[in-house]
Amino acid sequence: AKPPKTVTVKVEVTNADGETQTRTVTLTNLPKDLKPGDTVTLPETGQTARIVEITP
């Protein structure tokens, strides 16, 4: 079996106070056609994050 493909992405997350924070997260099994501006759900927090940058 192939190991899951991990991708490092820079995302913007809005916290409970309405502040936008930029975080770098490593995600696995992202859709192939994901692009900056799309939103993903962070598995560890369940927060919705907007992708700023994808590092191949």
Results as ranks from 00 to 15, higher is better:
Ala1Lys: 08
Ala1Asp: 15
Ala1Trp: 04
Ala1His: 14
Lys2Ile: 15
Lys2Asp: 13
Lys2Ser: 15
Lys2Gln: 14
Lys2Thr: 15
Lys2Trp: 12
Lys2Asn: 14
Lys2Val: 15
Lys2Phe: 14
Pro3Met: 07
Pro3Thr: 10
Pro3Glu: 12
Pro3Lys: 08
Pro3His: 14
Pro3Asp: 14
Pro3Tyr: 09
Pro3Gly: 11
Pro4Val: 12
Pro4Glu: 12
Pro4Gln: 11
Lys5Ser: 13
Lys5Leu: 13
Lys5Asn: 15
Lys5Pro: 15
Lys5Ala: 14
Lys5His: 14
Lys5Cys: 14
Lys5Thr: 15
Thr6Trp: 14
Thr6Ser: 11
Thr6Val: 11
Thr6Asn: 09
Thr6Lys: 09
Val7Met: 10
Val7Asp: 04
Val7Cys: 08
Val7Gly: 04
Val7Thr: 10
Val7Pro: 02
Thr8Tyr: 06
Thr8Lys: 09
Thr8Phe: 06
Thr8Trp: 04
Thr8Met: 10
Thr8Glu: 08
Thr8Asp: 07
Val9Ala: 08
Val9Met: 08
Val9Thr: 01
Val9Ser: 00
Val9Asp: 00
Val9Ile: 13
Val9Gln: 00
Val9Tyr: 03
Val9Phe: 01
Val9Leu: 10
Lys10Ser: 06
Lys10Phe: 06
Lys10Leu: 14
Lys10Trp: 07
Lys10Met: 10
Lys10Gly: 02
Val11Ile: 12
Val11Ala: 03
Val11Pro: 00
Val11Phe: 06
Val11Gly: 00
Val11Gln: 00
Glu12Pro: 00
Glu12Leu: 12
Glu12Lys: 07
Glu12Thr: 13
Glu12Arg: 07
Glu12Asp: 05
Glu12Gly: 02
Glu12Cys: 06
Glu12Asn: 05
Glu12Gln: 13
Glu12Met: 11
Val13Glu: 03
Val13Ile: 14
Val13Gln: 03
Val13Asn: 01
Val13Phe: 15
Val13Thr: 08
Val13Leu: 11
Val13Arg: 01
Thr14Phe: 07
Thr14Asn: 05
Asn15Lys: 06
Asn15Ser: 11
Asn15Phe: 09
Asn15Gln: 08
Asn15Met: 12
Asn15Cys: 09
Ala16Met: 10
Ala16Asp: 10
Ala16His: 10
Ala16Ser: 12
Asp17Met: 13
Asp17Glu: 12
Asp17Cys: 11
Asp17Gln: 12
Asp17Phe: 12
Asp17Ser: 12
Gly18Cys: 03
Gly18Trp: 02
Gly18Phe: 02
Gly18Asp: 02
Gly18Ala: 02
Glu19Ala: 11
Glu19Ser: 13
Glu19Thr: 14
Glu19Leu: 12
Glu19Gln: 11
Glu19Lys: 14
Thr20Trp: 06
Thr20Leu: 10
Thr20Asn: 06
Thr20Cys: 06
Thr20Gln: 06
Thr20Met: 11
Thr20Pro: 06
Gln21Ser: 14
Gln21Tyr: 09
Gln21Trp: 05
Gln21Lys: 11
Gln21Val: 15
Thr22Arg: 08
Thr22Cys: 08
Thr22Ser: 06
Thr22Gly: 03
Thr22Tyr: 10
Thr22Phe: 11
Arg23Val: 15
Arg23Ile: 15
Arg23Gly: 04
Arg23Gln: 10
Arg23Tyr: 11
Thr24His: 06
Thr24Ser: 05
Thr24Gly: 01
Thr24Tyr: 08
Thr24Pro: 01
Val25Lys: 01
Val25Thr: 03
Val25Ser: 01
Val25Asn: 01
Val25Ile: 14
Val25Glu: 08
Val25Tyr: 02
Val25Arg: 01
Val25Asp: 03
Thr26Ile: 13
Thr26Glu: 15
Thr26Gln: 12
Thr26Ser: 11
Thr26Leu: 09
Thr26Val: 13
Thr26Asp: 14
Thr26Tyr: 04
Leu27Gly: 09
Leu27His: 05
Leu27Ser: 10
Leu27Cys: 12
Thr28Gly: 15
Thr28Ala: 12
Thr28Tyr: 03
Thr28Arg: 06
Thr28Glu: 14
Thr28Val: 15
Thr28Gln: 11
Thr28Asn: 07
Thr28Lys: 07
Thr28Met: 02
Asn29Leu: 03
Asn29Ser: 08
Asn29Gly: 13
Asn29Asp: 15
Asn29Arg: 04
Asn29Cys: 08
Asn29Val: 07
Asn29Phe: 04
Leu30Phe: 14
Leu30Cys: 15
Leu30Pro: 15
Leu30Gln: 12
Leu30Gly: 12
Leu30Val: 14
Leu30Ile: 15
Leu30Asn: 10
Pro31Leu: 14
Pro31Phe: 13
Pro31Tyr: 09
Pro31Glu: 15
Pro31Cys: 14
Lys32Pro: 15
Lys32His: 15
Lys32Ser: 15
Lys32Ile: 15
Lys32Val: 14
Lys32Phe: 05
Lys32Leu: 14
Asp33Lys: 05
Asp33Pro: 06
Asp33His: 09
Asp33Trp: 13
Asp33Tyr: 08
Asp33Gly: 11
Leu34Lys: 04
Leu34Glu: 00
Leu34Thr: 08
Leu34Ala: 14
Leu34Trp: 11
Leu34Asn: 01
Leu34Phe: 08
Leu34Val: 12
Leu34Met: 10
Leu34Ile: 12
Leu34Gly: 02
Lys35Phe: 07
Lys35Trp: 05
Lys35Tyr: 07
Lys35Ala: 09
Lys35Glu: 06
Pro36Ser: 05
Pro36Cys: 06
Pro36Lys: 07
Pro36Asp: 03
Gly37Cys: 03
Gly37His: 02
Gly37Leu: 01
Gly37Arg: 01
Gly37Asn: 04
Gly37Phe: 02
Gly37Ile: 00
Asp38Arg: 02
Asp38Ser: 05
Asp38Leu: 03
Thr39Trp: 14
Thr39Ala: 06
Thr39Glu: 10
Thr39Tyr: 14
Thr39Leu: 13
Val40His: 01
Val40Asp: 00
Val40Gly: 00
Val40Phe: 13
Val40Leu: 09
Val40Thr: 03
Val40Met: 11
Val40Tyr: 05
Thr41Pro: 04
Thr41Cys: 05
Thr41His: 09
Thr41Trp: 13
Leu42Arg: 00
Leu42His: 03
Leu42Glu: 02
Leu42Lys: 00
Leu42Pro: 00
Leu42Asp: 06
Leu42Met: 06
Pro43Asp: 07
Pro43Ile: 08
Pro43Lys: 06
Pro43Cys: 09
Glu44Tyr: 02
Glu44Thr: 10
Glu44Trp: 03
Glu44Asn: 08
Glu44Lys: 07
Glu44Ser: 08
Glu44His: 11
Glu44Cys: 10
Glu44Asp: 14
Thr45His: 04
Thr45Trp: 07
Thr45Gln: 03
Thr45Asn: 08
Thr45Arg: 03
Thr45Ala: 04
Thr45Met: 04
Thr45Ile: 09
Thr45Val: 06
Gly46Asp: 05
Gly46His: 06
Gly46Ile: 02
Gln47Pro: 01
Gln47Arg: 05
Gln47Phe: 04
Gln47Tyr: 02
Gln47Ser: 04
Gln47Gly: 06
Gln47Asn: 04
Thr48Asn: 10
Thr48Gly: 04
Thr48Pro: 11
Thr48Arg: 09
Thr48Asp: 06
Thr48Met: 12
Thr48Val: 15
Thr48His: 09
Ala49His: 02
Ala49Lys: 00
Ala49Thr: 02
Ala49Met: 02
Arg50Lys: 12
Arg50Pro: 01
Arg50Ile: 15
Arg50Phe: 04
Arg50Met: 10
Ile51Ser: 00
Ile51Cys: 01
Ile51Met: 02
Ile51Leu: 05
Ile51Thr: 01
Ile51Arg: 00
Val52Trp: 00
Val52Asp: 01
Val52Lys: 05
Val52Glu: 01
Val52Ser: 03
Glu53Leu: 04
Glu53Asp: 09
Glu53Ala: 10
Glu53Phe: 02
Glu53Trp: 02
Glu53Asn: 06
Ile54Met: 07
Ile54His: 02
Ile54Asn: 02
Ile54Asp: 02
Thr55Ser: 12
Thr55Gly: 12
Thr55Ile: 15
Thr55Glu: 12
Thr55Phe: 14
Thr55Met: 15
Thr55Lys: 09
Pro56Val: 13
Pro56His: 14
Pro56Tyr: 05
Pro56Ala: 13
Pro56Gly: 12
Pro56Glu: 13
Pro56Ser: 13
Pro56Ile: 11
